[in-house]
Nucleic acid binder design. Structure first.
Lengths: 259, 259
DNA sequence: CGCCATAATATGTCGGAGTAAATCAGGAGA
DNA sequence: TCTCCTGATTTACTCCGACATATTATGGCG
């Protein structure tokens, strides 16, 4: 907090984000969306700590060079995600971390916009190591042919591109996503965003170490085979191995330093 | 959709929600909050199905007897939770269920505002049956004295009040919440809202059967003892038993009919 | 010294005006 | 006849200024 936000975005209305078609899909297409992104990342990065109270609407909106309406809509977004709460006369206050919807895809993106908090990444991995083996087990029991087809496709894509490319990483996410969908459990699918982020950062950390110590394809293939065969125990076991390896890689590269 | 929303809330500004102090904590304290609640429950209950497009801003806001500002802020809330998306000329459309942030506490509340979807309750239980044993294991490894104290308190409260009272159910939620917190995993704590809803509906369903077939205290005490003793395997095992029993009770009472 | 009424202040709500963008229709060209 | 481009329309988006409401702070009164 202290004095001021290093105002970027000054008077840029719409960053145009490329040419047209919305290919890159920037942070927020609308003004209030961009504002929410800006304020959200500021909060997630600790610029505004829990308990801090934001400047008054009129003053802050003017400082940010936006109308009060746009500012308020951005605040409503943050409120909806549990980051802040505003009361008349008291102002808008940043809520404690427990209230934040950290599993919200957007909040997750904001958390990873800057330097990600290593402790949070660790937590996310731990969650993943709990969810995914169980998900693989359920998937083995309930998968449809279509589910298996999607997994095969994703695995094939992983083979074609490697994890060093964005396409390869996307295929990796698709593979894990397909498993979660195959559980037929909606609550599980919702977690795919969080799990996906964890998977993404796995490969990201692996990139940093520049090792790629292990070919991920066989491990993934083992999971797929078990699920396709309907062998629940084998699926859970194989996914457990996969997750443990990822956790290990990440831990070691995190110890080496977050930067 | 079809013709109109059965407009309640007409010109009621602030339901006053009791006296003061915000004890009961109604759906939405502000107008746009109440609107978001209204529209959110309408979407979650299926009144507006995925793919449906809402009436235009001006028309709908007028129909709901609110200003466009308030209406827009409500829509921003729904957008933030992944329920709808709006684009110029195209209007505001309800997104497919996969995009909904079903783990968001508010969305969860909206989902349970009317008759809860039995399939969703089942999914939530399944998630709980995966998370909680693992959480109990982690809690056994990492619990602090303060954590154990909180669990003891919650269990004592469960003993005092029974699960037939709201205080007892709150104590039940507190117990499970304390375990999640004891894991030291922030991502886990965030799930407490979802898990809490599952726990709440367990007891709710039990109430319906009017059986209360089993005294829950010993099962909970077994979990607590294992965690306090630092026995990870025993903690996971004991919690597994607890969750399985709850799952069984709920399944049988769900089969008897959701109403 | 403590309680209650009053005033000050910031959020909440309102209504309207103007801008930007996406869709649809129409026309020119192949 | 079909395709592509161009314009017009519709809709959400942004801005502005004002009023209403709720909460806190203040000061007087018992």
């Amino acid at each position: 907090m202290t004095d001021a936000v290093p105002d970027k975005l000054s008077d840029q209305r719409n960053p145009a984000e490329g040419a047209k078609g919305g290919a890159t899909r920037g942070p927020g297409r609308r003004l209030h969306g961009a504002l929410a992104h800006k304020l959200g990342t500021a909060i997630l990065s600790g610029q505004y700590a829990p308990g801090d109270v934001l400047p008054g609407e009129v003053a802050f909106a003017e400082e940010l060079k936006v109308s009060r309406s746009a500012y308020r809509e951005a605040i409503q977004v943050l409120t909806a995600k549990g980051l802040v709460a505003s009361r008349p006369k008291a102002g808008t206050k940043v809520l404690p971390r427990e209230r934040w919807n950290l599993l919200d895809p957007e909040v997750l993106a904001w958390a990873f916009a800057g330097e990600p908090d290593v402790a949070f990444v660790r937590d996310l991995f731990e969650l993943r190591s709990i969810i995914e083996p169980a998900a693989a087990r359920l998937a083995a029991l309930r998968r449809s042919k279509e589910d298996v087809r999607l997994m095969r496709e994703a695995l094939a894509a992983m083979r074609r591109h490697t994890l060093t490319t964005e396409a390869g990483r996307a295929a990796d996410r698709d593979f894990h996503d397909a498993i979660l969908r195959a559980t037929g459990n909606h609550a599980m699918v919702v977690l795919s965003a969080s799990i996906g982020a964890a998977v993404h950062w796995t490969t990201q950390f692996k990139q940093r170490t520049r090792e790629l110590p292990r070919n991920p394809i066989p491990d993934h293939a083992r999971v797929l085979d078990a699920i396709a065969a309907g062998d629940a125990d084998a699926a859970a076991e194989a996914m457990g191995v996969l997750v443990d390896l990822a956790l290990e890689d990440t831990r070691s590269s995190m110890e080496r330093g977050p930067g």
